[in-house]
């Protein structure tokens, strides 16, 4: 929320969960890096978001392409890889993304024009793709600066403030390398970093029901019967996986976070069948009230209240 400095040095950060005293800040706030820099008058760039929209197809047509196919437009637009028809790790084909200047940092809507644009560029090549197999479309915003390049460097105004800005595509791919660069910068400005000898970088591999063979499935159900109950029929996600996500150390308590952890609702029915079940699981595991369960952020309540609430209001 705010940063305190004194004599051009970082002092503390004010957050919604209290004040943190610190000498160093790595500003990696994506779309909002410029606003964070503004807090201490250390802005050296402005973010102008570029929207990218993607169409996602049903898994049952993933055989339609064998390789990822990229579409390159000539003359080549700078700083744009071109997108393509790509099979995701989970087996859905996606078309996109597009690229479009979009001043609003919160606007991730997908417009008719965007959908049309994707069809115009992809349909001529992939005319055999069935349109009715589209299961969703999304858009995201790339955090572009006007130099159209990563800005990874210490602030020249405030000591201890490091910019990791303009991390547009391929920022995800570059993230491990960016991290090493930032460590180098920290060491240069005198931070002593020691490797923890017992640090284990590996997470225990989660058992994902749909990828197990029948023997393994049987074993996991015998250990935890909840793994025998399919909650999301389209993606074959079990009650066990949903409950694990709800009870994990960083607990997933709303629809979208459970969806991102487990894939429930990511299939062809888009949550029509499993939503009531997931609501029930959240209530059973946490004691939350149904009407308080969110889609994602504060204010995105799934329901306005219990049945009859409007009738009782009128009385």
């Amino acid at each position: 929320m705010d940063i305190k400095t004194s004599e051009n040095k970082i002092k503390s950060v004010l957050t919604t969960k209290g004040i943190i005293e610190t000498k160093y800040i790595i500003n990696a706030a994506g779309l909002h890096v410029d606003e964070i820099s503004d807090m201490i008058n250390a802005r050296e760039y402005t973010i102008h978001p570029k929207k990218g929209s993607t169409i996602i197809f049903d898994k049952n047509i993933s055989d339609l392409i064998k390789h990822n196919i990229s579409i390159v437009n000539f003359p080549r637009e700078e700083h744009y890889k071109g997108g393509g028809a790509i099979t995701t790790l989970d087996g859905n084909i996606q078309w996109g993304p597009t690229i479009l200047e979009n001043y609003d940092k919160n606007d991730t809507s997908v417009s008719v024009n965007e959908i049309d644009k994707i069809f115009k560029s992809y349909s001529p090549i992939f005319d055999y793709f069935p349109k009715n197999s589209i299961i969703n479309y999304f858009s995201g915003l790339r955090a572009c600066t006007f130099t159209e390049d990563f800005i990874i460097k210490p602030s020249n105004k405030i000591e201890g403030f490091i910019h990791v800005a303009g991390i547009q595509s391929p920022g995800l791919t570059a993230a491990p390398a960016i991290a090493e660069m930032v460590i180098g910068i920290l060491e240069n400005i005198g931070v002593k970093l020691e490797k923890k000898p017992d640090f284990n970088p590996f997470n225990d591999k989660k058992k994902i029901f749909r990828y197990l063979n029948y023997e393994e499935k049987n074993e996991i159900i015998k250990k935890n019967p909840d793994y025998g109950e399919i909650i999301c029929r389209c993606e074959q996600i079990t009650k066990g996986e949903v409950i694990d996500a709800i009870n994990s150390p960083i607990s997933a308590l709303n629809m979208d976070s459970i969806k991102r952890r487990t894939r429930v609702g990511m299939g062809r029915c888009q949550g029509g069948f499993c939503l009531p079940n997931i609501v029930k699981n959240i209530i059973e595991e946490t004691g939350l009230k149904g009407e308080d369960i969110l889609k994602n952020d504060e204010g995105s309540n799934l329901f306005i209240g219990k049945s009859k609430c409007l009738i009782n209001d009128k009385k």
Binding site: E114, G272, L294, S300
Partner: peptide, 16 residues
């Protein structure tokens, strides 16, 4: 099952 919003390419945001 029911057809969803995506099958008729309904544009806009994705709120609750």
């Amino acid at each position: 099952r029911e057809r969803t919003r995506s099958q008729i390419l309904l544009p806009g945001t994705r709120p609750a």
